[in-house]
Design a protein around this nucleic acid. Structure first.
Lengths: 227, 227
DNA sequence: TGGTGGTATTATGAATTCAAAATGCTAAAA
DNA sequence: TTTTAGCATTTTGAATTCATAATACCACCA
């Protein structure tokens, strides 16, 4: 029996705004007009304002007192810092996963790994990333630590909108796949410390950061803030 | 020149409620009556409700749709999970600190370390914990990663109210001090991976968890929820 | 006596209203 | 021509009001 979802308006609104930010319809630094959004959602200002408060404490939105809200702007440093954090959390997730994971779950992840290898061999970058992400998500889920999952998802949400333009060089890609081979081995042995180490050092995140150096505006470029 | 603090009511209110929770004037599971709090703060319901939304997404408060707010109840598992997370974050903070920390800051931490040792020798538990905490905070600050600091502080806030009744056995205490000796050594060498490792495994957190097993109600004991 | 149904009360959710701050515009002065 | 003062407009902050869901209470019935 599935739970009855008492959805309040402010939750609904928060989800919608989150979505707008994620898909880039609200750009970083862009002013969020309460009036405009209220009209497009067909709600009054109260639930919208409540939603904005929530999004602010999630780090997606910036509230300037008496001057409204704007989509949080990501500096290169913030993104780097966030990825560092995510690596550490992934490390922990691996360590914990080894303590809790069932044989069946390991099998499932191995299956994903095989599929990933397949996409690697066929050089299907898009599909590769997708399965790759599923593997990391599975490990995170196996950690059996909900606080960890909540935090990781929050961080991931923050940087989601800059997740594109991942150009893999051949050497990087090979190294990443090698990391995954080692991960699977550690997982099968249920060697938590080892899996943790591998995940913390896994260069997938590091790579993304590296490839970002051009994509994000560095520090406050005042012009980008306006309108 | 210090920034002008445009403090909105909802921030003020959130701080006040956070404080009430931290100091145990609002107990876990206790119903939060909007009317009552509004009257005691002398504000209308709007800013209070906004504050509650924020506190909810900070994990301090639980919002039951159409049924009001209550102080988040901590299960033993949640606290354990949170401490696991905090250890991982401390590990990261150590790793990063080694990359950024100045000689002067290292000196400062060494000074704190000496003071801590002194309290250890004199068996001044209270003072020991205080200086101990300052050391960890200094390392966190030296990490130069604000996202990390924000997240650590949030987690710390969540479990603050169960931070008491730390009874140290002699062996534990000695081990903890030994850890600190190694930490200082790693810090002086600026050996990030080593300091990270030590901090992740530092049994201070593990100890606290262990000592909690009796303190917190395990899982939903329905009676504790009411009134 | 225990349980069910229905009404009254209370508390929450959301819209509206009122107040205050910020912004934009025009005009006057340096 | 540029700057600044002052007013009008817009936008945000907070209180109030209205609507709706939850709770408490009581009578009625088995």
């Amino acid at each position: 029996m599935s739970k009855i979802q008492h959805r309040n308006l402010y939750r609904e609104v928060a989800d919608r705004v989150r979505d707008l930010i994620e898909r880039g319809e609200l750009m970083p630094g862009e002013r969020i007009s309460e009036k405009e959004l209220c009209e497009s959602f067909g709600v009054s200002r109260t639930p919208l304002r409540e939603a904005l408060k929530v999004l602010a404490s999630e780090g997606l939105v910036e509230l300037l007192p008496n001057r409204g809200a704007r989509v949080m702007r990501l500096t290169l440093k913030m993104v780097k810092d966030t990825y560092d954090l995510m690596s550490a959390l992934e490390g922990l997730s691996g360590e914990l996963a080894c303590q809790h994971i069932s044989d069946k779950e390991i099998d499932k992840i191995c299956g994903l790994h095989e599929r990933m290898l397949d996409h690697y061999r066929k050089r299907e970058l898009q599909e590769y990333f997708q399965v790759n992400q599923q593997i990391h998500e599975s490990i995170l889920a196996a950690s059996n630590n909900e606080v960890l999952q909540e935090m990781y998802n929050n961080l991931s949400q923050r940087v989601k909108r800059v997740r594109y333009s991942k150009q893999m060089t051949d050497t990087f890609w090979r190294q990443a796949v090698e990391d995954h081979e080692n991960m699977i081995a550690a997982l099968k042995k249920r060697d938590g410390p080892l899996l943790g180490q591998i995940l913390r050092d896994h260069l997938c995140n590091k790579l993304e950061v590296a490839s970002l150096s051009g994509v994000i505006e560095e520090e406050a470029s005042p012009s980008a803030a306006n309108s």
